[in-house]
Lab assay of single mutants.
Amino acid sequence: MAAGGDHGSPDSYRSPLASRYASPEMCFVFSDRYKFRTWRQLWLWLAEAEQTLGLPITDEQIQEMKSNLENIDFKMAAEEEKRLRHDVMAHVHTFGHCCPKAAGIIHLGATSCYVGDNTDLIILRNALDLLLPKLARVISRLADFAKERASLPTLGFTHFQPAQLTTVGKRCCLWIQDLCMDLQNLKRVRDDLRFRGVKGTTGTQASFLQLFEGDDHKVEQLDKMVTEKAGFKRAFIITGQTYTRKVDIEVLSVLASLGASVHKICTDIRLLANLKEMEEPFEKQQIGSSAMPYKRNPMRSERCCSLARHLMTLVMDPLQTASVQWFERTLDDSANRRICLAEAFLTADTILNTLQNISEGLVVYPKVIERRIRQELPFMATENIIMAMVKAGGSRQDCHEKIRVLSQQAASVVKQEGGDNDLIERIQVDAYFSPIHSQLDHLLDPSSFTGRASQQVQRFLEEEVYPLLKPYESVMKVKAELCL
């Protein structure tokens, strides 16, 4: 049975990233139509530049190519590739079939990587351009969430054990800070992308030097003109047959890092959902379990974690691919890159769409948070109580021993009897502590235990987050809708 299948058929496997999760716009960027249309555009740009620099290419040939950029006979191309065992030459023939007058000058002087690699770089750039505003929107939604809850005390956790208090907004800023680093890295790697350009079979530009009869300047002009037509500021000066596969490492490393950030955020949300302090959106008709109707599973956060793990592992592909590119190139890269580049971007696209949807509907339960604080705060307040007693004339050592005994009794009630923490009640009825009984409410005010959390939130948002989001103001209103 021949390899390949009808990918629109229910009898043929289709990647869930495309069929179930990723956005239509990201799927289109990695589609065959987008790819092969870009090949034709690159052939047109090459012909236009070659004509401008004096090669015998007519206006009629150029116009014929322009008129057929979208006229792609995919069936013919597939048949040609089956016959020739070469995808680029299959599309040269297919393009030439609908451009008979231009057929002889299509791909003039070029090698397969002229269309293959340059198209990949265009796709990487455009895919990054799709991700950047999506990530900015996630940051914006979380920034709104953090600002609104900047002063809401909550129990902090280290080692997932109760620690000092923080605020809900401050905790959210930990998430935002990681995503801001990801946004900066995505922008950097996007701006650092260079075009492969017009380089020939081993990167020496020998074929173009021959076409222009040894004119170095025209060869350099050709490279520059096509690079500018493709919208790049610069091209690699040095290439082998391909652009260095280190570029793929750079791009997928940034995406993998984004995956790590999203995994951490969504894990926190899942843990908070278990504590009943916070939940992701839950639709009115949504079913959490087929057997347990009360369940409210954090399905979206779980999906993000599941896909983020996949995204983090994909960076190993370009690392290994770059390491086995012998001399000017081997074909070890080809099949692998067809999979890992598309999957990385479709996965990143999915987790950003999902995280935006989550961040637009996060639900906080202040009463649950308050109750958990009441359970733990008495123990945390013991040092403040000791200091207040010393100020009232008591002995630190005597007070410490009193607190120690009462704390152990209260802990026994919590752990052995399943009761509430009654340390404060014990202190309130103990005559030894009568000098500070009137101060206990103040000493137990949760806001006095959150330090500068709310001020940190305000400063972080104003100095770091809002300036970073400013270039994306025009796209901030787009909502994230999930079908599944």
Rank of each mutant, 00 (worst) to 15 (best):
11 D>K: 08
15 S>G: 15
18 A>S: 15
22 A>E: 07
23 S>G: 08
23 S>Y: 07
24 P>M: 13
29 V>S: 05
32 D>L: 14
40 R>W: 01
42 L>P: 02
45 W>S: 10
59 D>G: 11
63 Q>E: 13
67 S>G: 12
67 S>N: 12
73 D>L: 05
74 F>Y: 09
86 H>D: 05
86 H>R: 00
92 V>N: 07
95 F>L: 07
95 F>K: 05
97 H>S: 12
99 C>G: 04
102 A>P: 02
103 A>Q: 11
103 A>T: 11
105 I>H: 12
107 H>G: 00
108 L>H: 07
112 S>E: 00
116 G>C: 12
120 D>F: 07
121 L>T: 09
122 I>F: 13
122 I>D: 00
123 I>P: 02
130 L>V: 13
131 L>N: 07
138 V>N: 10
146 A>L: 04
149 R>V: 10
154 T>I: 09
157 F>V: 00
158 T>H: 00
160 F>D: 04
160 F>R: 02
160 F>G: 06
161 Q>M: 00
171 R>I: 01
174 L>T: 08
175 W>P: 03
176 I>R: 02
178 D>H: 03
189 V>A: 11
190 R>L: 10
192 D>S: 11
193 L>H: 08
194 R>I: 03
203 G>T: 01
207 S>N: 02
210 Q>K: 14
213 E>I: 13
214 G>C: 09
217 H>C: 13
221 Q>H: 13
222 L>I: 07
227 T>L: 03
231 G>H: 09
244 T>W: 06
246 K>C: 05
251 V>A: 14
253 S>T: 14
258 L>E: 05
261 S>C: 03
261 S>P: 03
262 V>K: 04
264 K>V: 05
275 L>E: 06
278 M>C: 10
282 F>L: 14
291 A>C: 04
291 A>R: 02
294 Y>T: 06
304 C>I: 15
309 R>F: 06
314 L>M: 12
316 M>Y: 04
318 P>S: 09
319 L>H: 07
321 T>M: 09
322 A>C: 12
325 Q>T: 08
328 E>I: 05
330 T>Y: 03
332 D>Y: 00
335 A>C: 12
343 E>S: 09
345 F>T: 12
346 L>R: 05
349 D>Q: 06
357 N>T: 12
363 V>A: 05
364 V>I: 14
364 V>R: 03
367 K>Y: 06
371 R>F: 02
378 P>Y: 07
383 E>T: 03
390 V>D: 03
392 A>P: 04
396 R>M: 01
397 Q>D: 06
399 C>G: 07
400 H>I: 03
407 S>C: 10
408 Q>N: 14
408 Q>W: 06
423 L>V: 04
432 Y>I: 07
435 P>M: 05
442 H>N: 14
447 S>H: 15
450 T>D: 03
452 R>D: 04
452 R>H: 05
455 Q>I: 05
462 E>Y: 12
465 V>M: 05
469 L>R: 03
470 K>N: 13
473 E>L: 14
481 E>K: 13
